[in-house]
Nucleic acid binder design. Sequence first.
DNA 1: AATAAACCGACCGCCCTGGTAGGATTTATT
DNA 2: AATAAATCCTACCAGGGCGGTCGGTTTATT
Lengths: 167, 167
Amino acid sequence: MIFSSKAEYGVRLMVELGRQSPEQPTSLKAIADAEGLPLAYLEQVVARLRKAGLVMSARGAHGGYWLARPAEEIAMDEVVHALEGTIAPMECFVHDHTERVLCSHEPDAGRGCATKLLWMRVQGGVIRSLQTTTLAELVEFSRRHERDQAEPLTPGHSGDGRTAVAV
Amino acid sequence: MIFSSKAEYGVRLMVELGRQSPEQPTSLKAIADAEGLPLAYLEQVVARLRKAGLVMSARGAHGGYWLARPAEEIAMDEVVHALEGTIAPMECFVHDHTERVLCSHEPDAGRGCATKLLWMRVQGGVIRSLQTTTLAELVEFSRRHERDQAEPLTPGHSGDGRTAVAV
DNA sequence: AATAAACCGACCGCCCTGGTAGGATTTATT
DNA sequence: AATAAATCCTACCAGGGCGGTCGGTTTATT
C-alpha cells in the first residue's frame, strides 16, 4: 500500500471544496458530515493544505475553507505532496539519513544504484500521473456521478486484478 | 513513502542473482555479505520470491538460489508484486473490507469515486513503470557501475524518470 | 559423522498511523 | 455584551505493521 488515509481524506476534501462556489467558505463540519469523516482529524488534514497555500480559511462564525485557486489550476501532485510529504517509493528518497541499510546512495561498489534506477522510474510514473490530473477533473467526475449509478472506471493498467472498480 | 524494505532487499537479491551465472546456486549468505543485509531476514524475503516462482532453490551444502528464468524475461512488476503483494496506492484497493471509512466503493452518493479515479491513474503509472523494466536492465546497469564511482542520477521529479539514468 | 545450506514458525520492540481530547482564539449574530 | 460557530493548536494514546531475531528441522555434500 502506498498512500495513507491523509491523502484520501485530503483529496476528498479538496473535491468537496471544488464543488462549492469559490470565495464562499465551507465549514469543515459540513464536509465531515457529507463524507462521514471525523472532524477533529480533518482539522489536521486541512491544516496541511492551508500551509501549502492550496486552501484559504476564515475564522469565526460562518467561517470555513475555500480553494486558493481555481480547480483547473490545481494539479494533484501538489495536493498529494502537501498531504503526504515527498512523493517517493522508498525511504532513502526522502530522508538522506544514511543510518539505515535500506538505500545505497553511497558508492558501495555502485551496486545499490541498480535498485535506485528502478525506484526513480516508479517515482516518475507516480508523479507524472499526479501532475497530469487536475482537481477540476475530479470535481467534474464527481459531478457527473452525482445521481447516476457509478460507472466502471477504466483500469489504469493492463492485467492484474483491481480491474474491479464499479459500484 | 511507498514500498517497504522487503522490496528493496528483494530487488537487490534478484539483481545479485542476475549477476551470477544461472543454474549455479548462490547461497543467501554470500548475498547477505555482499549487500550487508541480515541473513535471517533475507530468508523471509527470498521465500516470497520462491513461492512466486521467480527463483529456484537447492537445499543442502553448496545449495542456494538462482533465477527461475533468464533476467530478460523477468519484468519488475512481478518481482515487486511477489515481495509487496498487490501494488496499490490505497488500502481499499487491496482488501475489499468495507469496514474502514477510507474508501468509498459503495455508491455513497457516488462522490468517493472521484478519488478512486485518481488512485487508479497512480496505480497505472506505477505498474506501467514496473512492467517496462526488466531485471536484465538492472543487472546491466549494475554491471556498468561495477567499478566506476557512482554518479548522481538525475532526479526523477519532473522528468519521466526514464530519462534519468545518465552515465 | 559433520557441515552447509535451505526451510519454517514463533516471537518482539519500535514507530507510525489514525484518531481523540481539550482547549484557545477569532468572528458573526443576537 | 453575550453567545455561538467556527478555525486553530498541542498533547496524548491505542493498535498494528515493519524490520528483525531466534531456535530448530530438513536436506544434501564431503
